[in-house]
Design a protein around this nucleic acid. Sequence first.
DNA 1: AAAAGATCATTGACAATTTCAACGATCTAT
DNA 2: ATAGATCGTTGAAATTGTCAATGATCTTTT
Lengths: 155, 155
Amino acid sequence: MATQSTEVGTPRLAASRIGNDIGLLLAKLHAAGSVLNNRALADFGLRERSFSVLTLACSGLEPTQRELADFLSLDPSQVVSLVDDLERRGLVERTQGKQDRRAKIITSTAEGRKMHTKARSALDACEHEQLSALTTAEADQLRALLRKALWGAGA
Amino acid sequence: MATQSTEVGTPRLAASRIGNDIGLLLAKLHAAGSVLNNRALADFGLRERSFSVLTLACSGLEPTQRELADFLSLDPSQVVSLVDDLERRGLVERTQGKQDRRAKIITSTAEGRKMHTKARSALDACEHEQLSALTTAEADQLRALLRKALWGAGA
DNA sequence: AAAAGATCATTGACAATTTCAACGATCTAT
DNA sequence: ATAGATCGTTGAAATTGTCAATGATCTTTT
């Protein structure tokens, strides 16, 4: 994410064969969205990643840090920092794993859930803005295709 | 891209609301694909980005470095390094802009085009592997939706 | 039941990347 | 002409990514 702007720039070069590369398209849309998202989350002292951790902590799924690392495509040590920060701010708590005492389950505090609710609605607005060129049906379709590409038909 | 593996990990947490966030889905699919792509390109001494620059250099579109930066969502200084490397290896050349003498137009050498052809076919295989959970029609649809989200219906 | 080997969170070191401010050269507008 | 913007480039600073080592705990093998 180099361009601080949201503008996705001259589509002139999109005519190249590379304008059809899934990898590049993913990178570009992701970069553009990150700027939007981080800008919106800054009001809450959050970034995309800490928001993701907070969301999962609020989900009731009781994720371990290892699961967070896998799911968010992060190194376990990065999760430590993310959780440290959220825990220091009282939004999240580490509790010992039930079957596995090595693992730490991340759960949200009441305050964390309040914060999450507010941040979530801000993010939804972002997403809507990011996909404004698509109809609602197309946006849903995009989501479904991305999920299927990642996890197969099962998810 | 933390996990060096291609495995996209436990979909258990995908049940969370965040498993529908476009931002996260893009990040995950992009991260997984990057590992694949960079692994394949390593045989040619290329990475995703240098390959992108090389591709645009081969496109006949005569992009300036500024255009490359915009299109690839990179800082202009990052493009300098990328082009430096490719130029040192004789794959690409800087030529002075026609209307604007500040600008540098990046074009490919004959050797650059040979390299590009080989790398391209390796990458196509990657993309196919990355999207193996999708049918061909779905992959095309995904491409079209990403393009529309980025550049609107026009592109 | 004990030992060996794997996995979890954590730390800290190191490398790579991103971001930013400054610069000379050139372009554009006043 | 002059003033202000833009292009590529450099280099420094901040952020991120990667990796190896550790103690605690789990799992598997004997």
